[in-house]
Structures are given as C-alpha cells and as structure tokens.
Design a protein around this nucleic acid. Structure first.
Lengths: 188, 188, 188, 188
DNA sequence: CATGAATGAGTTTTCATTCAT
DNA sequence: AATGAATGAAAACTCATTCAT
C-alpha cells in the first residue's frame, strides 16, 4: 500500500487515468480509490490537471531512470540498444500503469496546454546511444531522432500487441526478437 | 466546406476530439464550430459517444481503404510493404485529424466500453501481406502480428516525430528511409 | 412577476444579495427563488460575480435616471437639491432592494476587484447641481464633491434610520426636514 | 506587531474582513496572515462568525470610547458636536480598518443573525448630545435620532470620499468644514 | 498551546441531453 | 429540419471545523 495519503492519491489517480483517461476519471473516484476525502486531493495538488501533470513527471522520471541505468550497464552501442529495448519491456511489465500513462500522455493533451519539457525525456536516452554508435562507425548513418522513433515505436507497439494477446509466441521470445530487430535497423 | 450539416458536425467533432480528447470536447463547442445549434447534434447522432464511434468507424474505414488500395497496386510482398508504409505517411498528411483520431482511439476508451471490431481494421492488411511474404519465402519467419506491430509502430512514431519537427531530414527522405527500414525488418 | 427567466434571476439575486450579502447568497437559493434550474444561471451570466456586477450596473442606472429626471423637473439649484433628496427617499421606498444593493456595493468589493465606473454614477448628478449653484452665487463655495458627500451621506443615513424604525416622526416629515437640512448646508 | 497570537489573529481577521467581507475571507487566509495554524483559530474563538462578532464588539467599543472621551472634553453642546465629528475623522485615520469594519457591519449581517446590541453603540453618544442641546435651547428641535443620522451620515461619507481621493481640499480643511456644517444643521 | 492534514458537507460550475417553438 | 433556452445530474473545487500528534 501507499505510505502516505499523497502517494495513495497518486497511485489511485494513475490507475484511473489509465483506465478511463484523465478527463473521464473523476476526482470522486480518485478519492474513493485512495481511501480519502475528495477535498483532501486539493491539499496535495492544485487541481486534477496539476495532479495529472505531476504524475506524468513522476512516471516519465522513473521510466527514464530505468533506461539510463540499462544503457549504463552495457558497453557497445548495439548492446546498449538491446538493453534499452529490454528495459522498455521490463518497465512496461513492472509498472504497467505508469507505462500506459506515459504513452497515453503523448496523445491527450492536458487541460492547460501541452506538457513542456521540464526534464529530459525517456526518449532522449535513445538518441544519445544512436549518435555515439554512428560516430564509432558501428551503426549506419541515420537521423538519430528518426532512429529513436523507429525503435521506440516498434517496441511500444510490440508491447501493446503482446499485452492484448495478439502475439502468440512466448513473451521471452517477443522481447528477444524485438531486440534483434531493433539492432538490425541500425546495422550498416 | 462541408456539404451537409451532418458532415459539418463530423468535421468539427473530429478536429475537437483530436485537439482535446473525446470527453473534454463539449457538444457546445462542436455545435458552434459546425455552425449549428447544439440540439441539432441529436437529430443526426444518438449521443456524443455515438458520434465518436461513428467517426472512428469512418476514419478507420477510409484509412483501411487507402491501405488496401496501396497493397493492391504493388506486386511483390516487399513492394506491398513499401506501398503500405508510404500510404500511412500519405494518409497522415492528407487527413491529419483522421489519422490522429485513429491513433488516439487506441488509447482512450469511449464512454460505453472499448470499440468492438465491427469491420476489419487497418492493421489486418499488414498481417496478410507479411503472411504471404513468409509463405513465398521472401520474408523471414516472424509472427505476422509481431511484424505488424513493428512496422505500424515504427511508422506511426516516425510520422509523429516528423510532424512535431523533431526530424531534420526532408520529409521525402524520412518516408523512403522508413520504407527501407520496414523491409529490412522482414528480409531473411 | 418577471417577464423572462433572465429577469426572474436578476430579481431573485437582488433580494438575496441584499438579504445576506453577495458571497453568502448561494446560486442554489437564487435559482430556486427564480423558479429555474441552477445551471440556467450560467446561460445568462458568466458567474455569480458577473451577475452581481451586472445587477449593480442596472440598479445604479435606474437610480441615476431617477435623480436626473428629478433634477430636470426643478428650476433653481435649491429646488433641484430638494428634488434630488426627495428622489432618493422615493427610490429607496419604491425599489427598496435596489437601493440597499447600491449602498451595500460601496462596502463590499466583488470577487474580481472593485467596480470600475463603466457609466456615470448617481452621485455625479449632485456634483453638477452644486457646482452650478455655486457659479450662480446661490450656494456658498464648497468643494462640490464634499457637498455631495454631505448630502448623500445624511440622506442615506436618514433613510436607513427611518427604515429601521429609529426615527419617530412621520415619514413625510422626515423627508421634508432632510430636504430643508440639505439646502441649509449649501446656503451662503 | 501583535503581542499575542490571539491579537495577531484579530488583526489579520480585521484586515481581511474589511478587504473582502466576512464571508469571503477564509480561515486559511486569516491563519496565514496571522502567522499561525488554521486549527489554532479555534483555540481562541469558537467559530469564524464568533471571531467576527468579537471583532465588531472590540472595534465598536474602541470607537465609542473615542467619542465619549471627545464629548467629555468639550463643554457646550456645539463644541461637543464639533469634538465628535473630529473624533470620527481621527478614529477613521488612526484605525482605518476598525472604522471600515464598523461601517461594513451595518450592511452585512453575520452568519448567525443580526448583531444584537450587547453594549451602547457609538451613535448613542450623538443622540445624547443633541438631546441636551435641544433641552438647553441652543439647538433647534429635531428628532435626535434624525439629527444623529444626518451628522453621522454626512461625516462618514466625507471620510469615505476623502479616503478615495475624491475631495481636493486638504484634509484639515475637510474636517473643519464638516464640523462647521454639522453644527449648522442643528443651529436654531 | 500549537500544528496542519484530514474531513465532508457545501459551493460554484459544467455539460449532455431534452423540448417547446 | 433547426433552434437555443432549459434542465438536472454530476462534475470540480472550497472551506469551516476537527483531531491526532
């Protein structure tokens, strides 16, 4: 369970935002699920929108940390890419709701305008690894942002498809084949 | 402009749903943007939710038609894959809002539960092409759904990144490099 | 009764604002008293505060009209002052709530800051009459605004005292003695 | 600064009640401005309403004392009236918020009904002076309450106008002219 | 005495939907 | 078909008051 009421609110909100979307999730439901009074939400967060933004920041931060750690634990650029893709699968599995919320947030703007990057985003990690691989000549030259789009996009969709049961092969294999496919995209 | 009021409503709703999400777009805004009275929405559609579902069906149908036509116009499986990726880019560019709405609909459920497949979905087209390529031995063996996930995911993200200006190379090149990358994923 | 719902809302709000103050009167009470749904308030006015401001404008306008008409109907400055004082008593008696609301509004700021003069205020009428009396030599020289303060203040208080039953002499006499006292203040 | 927390609360509440009205000032704001915790308000006062009533009692008491002292320091009725008017100006200037709060309280009822006179009110002082002046034949016969209404009303308005910068002549002169005008009202 | 998180009943406001015209 | 005022249920948000620490 959550250590503090504040955390309980964040957890409840995360689940509900993912389940029904930010604007369809009501403060009443969030409070109820968090085991607190509705008004108490507003002691901890300015508004529902601010709660959503805060949550996005937290989730993106946790995700990014996982990616950074994964990349740090591998040596060659190709191994780093593999580690990143595996880390995406692992994060999506360990923190299902957080992962979904990050994806969701790309498609639904919050009430008070789009999210301004207050911190480096998860995807930046990919760009750096690709760039360094190209510099060392082990990856073919591609716009690092385009490479990021490819790998992040294919991995995210593979995760989503796997989750919804559309892919028949065992999960372990899905991960490894996706890792191999991602590296294939960058090989000279 | 829209030929009929009904079309005007569909157009206005599409724009607003994409801009702020289905539940955050109000019927009042939709009516205003469509240049009609709020109550008139209910002469054409049962409810806001039904309007959204109808819209999804229309957009997905148009998208699927583009993909089917594209695949039909190419002969080899590899050419078909290339044609499909190009068609995704083209559709995203011609029907910006429709494309965004399709993507968005994957992440936000409508009020009355998830969308039930009333018709074949765009992604099914990819699966069939991949399957036939594998059968003919020109693609390596992969779960066709996994292959679909990869290609649809990478292409969609490339489109999104390109739209938001994060990719520097010219649009034409982004398309062709993505086509080539998609085929690379399936080559033996 | 009120001809339209909008007027019914204005009337109900006026009574309640005077009775309990703007911030203590609730939109629910207002709607109930106006015989309409709470939400309908917001079709006619942006917010409770905007309703209060609008009401102030209306009441002040009606009051001012009464004063202007009264002054126009008298010839000499002293008669004009007498007519103005009598008009204040008459307005307070005919439109009890409106008069009270004007007074109240001087002491309680609306939520969104003080009222900016969007139109000439009732008190301006006094200033002009006093100024012209001084110019013609029938009034002694005083700052016209100070003279206005005196007469408006004494009259308003006399009305309030009379209303609350603190003054024993008959109403008619209260009015005439106040008229005479006001003129006395300005005589050379 | 305030010597005790209790006084700090009273001071903060007074300022806020005057600024936005009793019901619009929140306990949170009051506590914050007083530099204490919200809950602490309830150690010193039963409720917000009780705090407001207490404050009214205090302010009215201080005001009354100033008036009583002023009247006591003058000998003839006319001099007493002059002293009273000067004392009103002085009090309004020394204790700006307290004066405003007294005025405000005439127009806005507290939550639990109107203020019951628990003590003689400031205005009573005027009544007595006027009565005694009439008895001694130095004032013309008027209902003493009506006379009070005139003088209190004109003085209060003069103060309000002067405060808001609408009167051009120097403050000292405003006071003396108002004193002279008040006496004029009562002269035979 | 002091704190400030927590409460819950209340408030203002919103909005999909209906309906008389 | 079209309108837009009206509805009412539910939303977000507020705030006086309580209470464990």
């Amino acid at each position: 369970m959550a250590a503090t009421k504040r955390e309980a609110i964040l957890e409840a909100a995360l689940d509900l935002f993912v389940e029904k979307g930010v604007s369809a999730a009501t403060t009443r439901e969030i409070a109820e699920k968090a085991g607190t009074a509705e008004g108490n939400l507003y002691r901890h967060f300015e508004s529902k929108d601010s709660l959503a933004r805060h949550l996005f920041g937290e989730c993106a931060g946790r995700f990014r940390k996982r990616l950074v750690d994964a990349a740090a634990g591998a040596s060659s650029p190709a191994e780093k890419i593999g580690a990143l893709v595996r880390a995406m699968f692992a994060f999506a599995s360990d923190e299902e709701a957080a992962f979904s919320f990050i994806i969701l947030s790309h498609h639904t703007e919050f009430a008070s305008g789009p999210i301004r990057n207050p911190q480096p985003l998860p995807r930046d990690v990919f760009g750096e690894v690709i760039r360094s691989g190209i510099d060392r000549g082990v990856f073919r030259p591609v716009d690092p942002n385009l490479g990021t789009a490819w790998i992040v996009g294919m991995t995210q969709r593979a995760i989503t498809f796997a989750r919804s049961g559309r892919i028949e092969c065992p999960k372990e294999e899905t991960v490894e084949r996706t890792v191999e496919a991602a590296i294939r995209l960058l090989e000279p």
